[in-house]
Write a protein that binds this DNA or RNA. Structure first.
Lengths: 345, 345
DNA sequence: TCCCCGTCTGACACCGGTGTCATAATGTCG
DNA sequence: CGACATTATGACACCGGTGTCAGACGGGGA
């Protein structure tokens, strides 16, 4: 089986390389009969252009990299699957690149990634979405990027998020409507901007319902199961014990649930528990966790789609024509399960 | 900021392109003084070779693709992280490619992947590791690949696995030693070769301990939480009820645990439960699941490492010199948690 | 001294596409 | 009918590296 190159096709169709290239790229100024001849040759020879050669000539790789540093495996795979969907739709491939937020060498690491892979663009996922230094770095290098679940919208880059503040508000409101007044809260990792958002939603709900904010009911977590267990230890031994706990994500909520169960507390009767994210664990444990579902795949898909659009347009001609600051906010959805009493409908 | 190419370096160092290339690739026949000059130029110009150009010239992409179709997100991310580790160590990048095992277009899909990305090699993860048709296809196309957690070792390709049969044996043996005789078993997905292995381990343990195999205690699952719930429904309503359940993975075991809890059965007193894989859920639920931990990252890392080795050697000169059929089996480890009574030590 | 041989180096073609530009063929308008 | 714009096509350089080969150079043996 010989290799089919653009030259084979050209001589087979009786035209020049360049004309074949024109057909490949849907360029204008090719007569219909010539185009047909070439397309026929494509089929009969079963030709596929070599993306590497193409990449070299056009300085493109047709690869997008997804950056993340996130302990939640389900979150990661959901991100990936949304990104992949968009990539494949547009003939791109996805490269994954986990890296440590706290690492000193972060920027070096990214620079190396850019050098060794020559990706066409980057998708920043939390906690990188709001990493000012990184964003500035990429902007300076003129590397296209899109941000997923970012909070700081005050600038001109692509950003797709869901409304964390509103989600946290709704779930807190649910607890309030169920009669809870002492609602403990476990914060997420301080590096994640979602942490602040969710906390804000919690406080707004309290405020709007005239419930006093009690600082001693708030624990610092970091989104890990382990940190949830630590916070639970404190919260569940408070006197009086709060009647509800809202943890900033499902892992921490699961840890609270486990701790409560071990203490022979009945959930939701003795203590109601709510999480955030709708991770698989939320429905795998008993009782199932009331939580907030975010459209993670959809967010990433949209982000990548716009990223690709930007890449493709930056490609042809006129520099930065209409740089649309595309910022999209999707809705999060409340999901009620057994860890809270059923809402009064 | 101008682009630094091999030409810049060449003229800066006062040598030819080719000599620079020689230094880059550690080729012999470069005098020490020349080499120094070039290395100095590298540093001072801050030069990094363009992998795309290199790829074109050498017909390489320095990218490996990881194929999977697996519902367990934690398994996927563990695979990925092992693969990434090995890739980065050798200057490769990883591209992920989920695809459907059952899809008719599987081979077309893979072919397209090969065409559009020109990956240098493939990592097959379950359930692709034992997909005869796919393996034959790749072999025919002479695409290097490595298999992770495959069972059929009867051939000449790279394969790294852990001993599922032994793991299942040990966990069953543990249950037996704890006094259980009626031990239900939930099978995994029939497309996964691990399914048969784990079942075999279960049966061997029964046989070696002189316990009769009871077919009605075995349920068909498919590794999903949902299928575990279905099987639990049946098993927990048997009369007499088995005193232990060994599910082929942790998700199914978690479902059994949830069902048992809902029925007010005490675990492990009324019923002991064991899983397989040591997924995060195994320690996130209460009681924690006794399970088998496989070195997933390590397996994938090794597989990719050998894959890269093969790619690199196939690269230089002599075709298929010493094709070492590298087949490695790692040990799985029993992890005892609260879902079974503590072992008599 | 001459010849042979190994070491070191560069010129040049090549990988498989794309961009630029010249040119031929066709159409349009005064 | 000639001047000129427009469409269709190909020749050729180029992207940034690598492979091939020939030639310069210095040392050892006859």
């Amino acid at each position: 089986m010989k290799k089919i190159t653009i030259n084979s096709v050209a001589s087979y169709a009786g035209v020049s390389k360049k004309t074949v290239s024109r057909v490949l790229n849907n360029e204008p100024n090719v007569s219909d009969v010539t185009r047909e001849k070439v397309l026929k040759a494509f089929k009969e020879l079963d030709y596929t252009p070599n993306p590497i050669a193409r990449g070299l000539a056009r300085n493109r790789s047709f690869i997008i990299a997804c950056l993340y540093d996130n302990p939640s495996k389900s979150y990661i795979t959901r991100l990936q699957s949304g990104a992949l969907e968009a990539c494949h739709e547009h003939g791109f491939n996805l490269l994954i690149h986990p890296c440590e937020l706290r690492s000193q060498a972060l920027l070096d690491n990214i620079e190396q990634l850019l050098q060794t892979s020559r990706v066409d663009g980057l998708v920043l996922t939390p906690p990188f979405s709001d990493h000012g230094e990184l964003v500035a770095f990429l902007r300076q290098k003129k590397v296209p990027f899109a941000r997923v679940a970012s909070v700081k919208l005050d600038d001109e880059s692509i950003s797709v998020r869901s409304n964390d503040e509103q989600g946290a508000f709704e779930i807190t409101e649910l607890l309030i409507e169920l009669g809870h007044k002492d609602i403990a809260f476990i914060k997420g990792h301080p590096d994640h901007s979602a942490t602040e958002q969710r906390f804000n939603g919690y406080r707004r709900a309290l405020a709007e319902h005239g419930i006093e904010y009690q600082e001693h009911l708030v624990e610092e977590g970091n989104f890990s199961y382990h940190s949830g267990a630590d916070s639970a230890e404190t919260i569940l031994h408070l006197d009086p014990r709060p009647t509800a706990v809202f943890a900033s994500n499902d892992y921490m909520a699961a840890a609270v649930l486990k701790a409560a169960t071990q203490m022979d507390l009945k959930v939701p009767d003795d203590i109601a528990i709510a999480g955030f994210d709708n991770a698989p664990i939320a429905r795998h444990i008993w009782p199932g966790l009331t939580t907030i579902a975010q459209p993670v795949e959809e967010m990433t898909r949209l982000a990548v789609e716009h990223l690709i659009e930007q890449i493709n347009q930056g490609d042809n001609g006129d520099e930065e024509q209409q740089k649309e600051p595309l910022q999209i906010t999707l809705e999060a959805k409340l999901i009620c399960r057994e860890s809270t009493a059923a809402p009064k409908s």
